[in-house]
Design a protein around this nucleic acid. Structure first.
Lengths: 251, 251
DNA sequence: CTGCTCAATTGATCCATGTCAAAACACAAT
DNA sequence: ATTGTGTTTTGACATGGATCAATTGAGCAG
């Protein structure tokens, strides 16, 4: 093994050790910290979330068909979930940012249903599912919290069905930008200026559109003064304007 | 109160009493009977699933915005789930038949996210959510089973996203028929002959298509000898033919 | 800096599905 | 049977977004 490689690994170990902080101090509170836990319960939770894993851009966290045994809390970075069809067609079914939970699709049949791919260098905490089950039998607020997260995923997906089934291209893209903005805001980032982590093609796949259509919509919103776009950078200049894109629909 | 009305109510009570059978004997096993329960656990389950409710065609089991407090197991009949938009547009997000579970969308935010409407006279068992939570802390196979059902709903929805985002009209409709056929089969009904409970418009809404497009696809499949359709009646003549509709896609 | 590759933009054209309209049909109430 | 209402089918036409193609730009390796 090359000396540089060895050094890199050692330094990685060092970094991992530093990052092995308690869940109680984790900035990704929403997942692993349902309100109202005792100190003892917090310690149990800490023991549950045992492994932290780093991924480079392009790495897959898991693939469709692989056995399921853990959920993943995104600590930093950005992921896409992708379902592939028999004939090779695929579709992006969601994007996950820091503070969100990944992998709940695997519980139902014991194998993952989609690929989770890092869109930038990322870090996750893995949460062994069998231990989550045990612990949530003991800590009812954890149980309740976990059920809520599953249910919200169901609701999120029916929102996407609405996008895909009932909205036109520009409405979908306006809704996409607003959703991204709102989630970034909830995580403490600027809701008005951000860098897209995904390509136009990935946005298109998620929204059931071709990349050219996504690009054209961005250009149109830009010309209409609703946003500024330059490559991956987006600045939203009029939240209201974007909302009107799909509010102003006449049926 | 009119005499006829009184009589009707009394007779309803009678029917309810008759139907108050134990979960152990219920034909809707998949929901309320995770494998391997002891007699005591079965009795507990029995007490959990307390209220049976009858709905006439067109009745809503619950509406978006109403407080959530129970899940519903469909004992007989057929439902659609529908999400309505601010501007009045709506979309069917799913169909549920006997043996399936309804209402998991409500857990996340404590209010229902969609309307559940009976498409024919139906009967459901209501399962108070707070008691389901309690009981699933005690009976781990119930807990596991419930988690699976939630997860499968997530997987189902990402399948629909695939339909809506990546498949063409005829592919969507072929997939829809095959899915219906497979679910009917799992419930012990004929997978090759059945009556649709929903209109072309409802199918279209679910699949992101207009009713005319649905009708044309049915006619085309009929002419191609894949199915027979006459109004609501469908006979599938070639499962393989339907599968090839979306397998034969060249990308 | 140069060349390479991949992402994004923009224009021109095409086509799958939507839209509009009319007729046939089914079912329920009277 | 008659009438009314909602569903389905079918045809003619319109259009939003896909497709095809060319160009520009960004990021990266050498």
């Amino acid at each position: 093994m090359a000396r540089a490689e060895l050094l890199r690994q050692q330094s990685t170990h060092l970094v991992l050790a530093e990052l092995k902080v308690a869940c109680a101090n984790c900035n990704v509170r929403e997942i692993c910290q349902p309100a109202g836990l005792t100190q003892e319960e917090l310690d149990q939770l800490d023991a549950l979330v045992n492994v932290r894993r780093k991924l480079k851009r392009g790495d897959t966290l898991y693939r469709a068909g692989e056995p399921f045994d853990a959920l993943y809390a995104v600590r930093s970075g950005f992921f896409k979930a992708r379902v592939t069809f028999e004939d090779g067609r695929d579709q992006v079914t969601g994007f996950s940012m820091a503070g969100e939970l990944l992998g709940m699709d695997g519980i139902g049949h014991g194998t993952h249903n989609c690929d989770a791919v890092a869109l930038e260098d990322s870090e996750v905490c893995s949460i062994p599912y069998s231990r989550l089950e045990e612990l949530s039998r003991e800590i009812s607020s954890l149980q309740r919290h976990f059920h809520k997260l599953m249910s919200r995923e169901i609701v999120r997906e029916s929102g996407v069905m609405m996008l895909l089934g009932a909205m036109r291209a520009e409405e979908r893209i306006a809704a996409f930008l607003l959703n991204l903005s709102q989630r970034l805001n909830a995580r403490g980032y600027s809701p008005l200026e951000f860098n897209l982590r995904m390509t136009r093609e990935e946005i298109g796949s998620y929204l059931g559109l071709k990349l050219e259509t996504v690009s054209r919509a961005f250009s149109k919103f830009h010309n209409d003064g609703l946003i500024e776009v330059e490559q991956k950078f987006v600045r939203i200049k009029s939240i209201e304007g974007l909302k009107q894109i799909y509010a102003h629909h006449v049926s």
